[in-house]
Amino acid sequence: MVRYKQTVIGIAWSVLRPFLTMVVFTVVFGKIAKLPSDGVPYPIMVYAAMLPWQFFANALQESSNSLINNVNLLTKVYFPRLLLPLSAMAVSLVDFLISIVILFALMLWYHFWPDWKILTLPFFLFLDLLAVLGAGLWLSALNVKYRDFRYVVPFIIQFGLYISPVGFSSSVIPERWRLLFSANPMVGVIDGFRWAILGDSTQIFWPGFLMSVGATLLFCIIGISYFRRTETSFADII
Rank of each mutant, 00 (worst) to 15 (best):
V2Q: 11
W13A: 08
R17M: 13
F19T: 14
F19Q: 03
V24K: 03
F25E: 06
T26E: 08
V27S: 08
F29N: 05
F29H: 03
K31G: 00
K34I: 01
L35F: 12
L35R: 02
S37K: 01
M45S: 11
V46K: 03
L60C: 07
L60R: 12
L60I: 05
L67Y: 11
L67W: 08
N70S: 15
L74R: 06
L82G: 09
A90S: 13
L97R: 00
L108A: 14
L108Q: 08
W109D: 02
F112E: 04
W116F: 10
L130M: 15
L130I: 13
G134Q: 12
L137D: 05
L139Q: 04
D148H: 12
F155P: 03
S164M: 09
G167K: 09
S169R: 02
S169A: 09
E175C: 00
R178L: 12
F181S: 09
F181E: 04
N184Q: 02
M186R: 04
V187S: 05
I190P: 08
F193M: 07
L198N: 02
D200R: 09
P207T: 09
L210W: 13
M211S: 03
L217T: 01
L217E: 01
C220M: 14
I224L: 15
S225Q: 08
Y226G: 00
F227G: 02
R229P: 00
S233W: 10
D236Y: 10
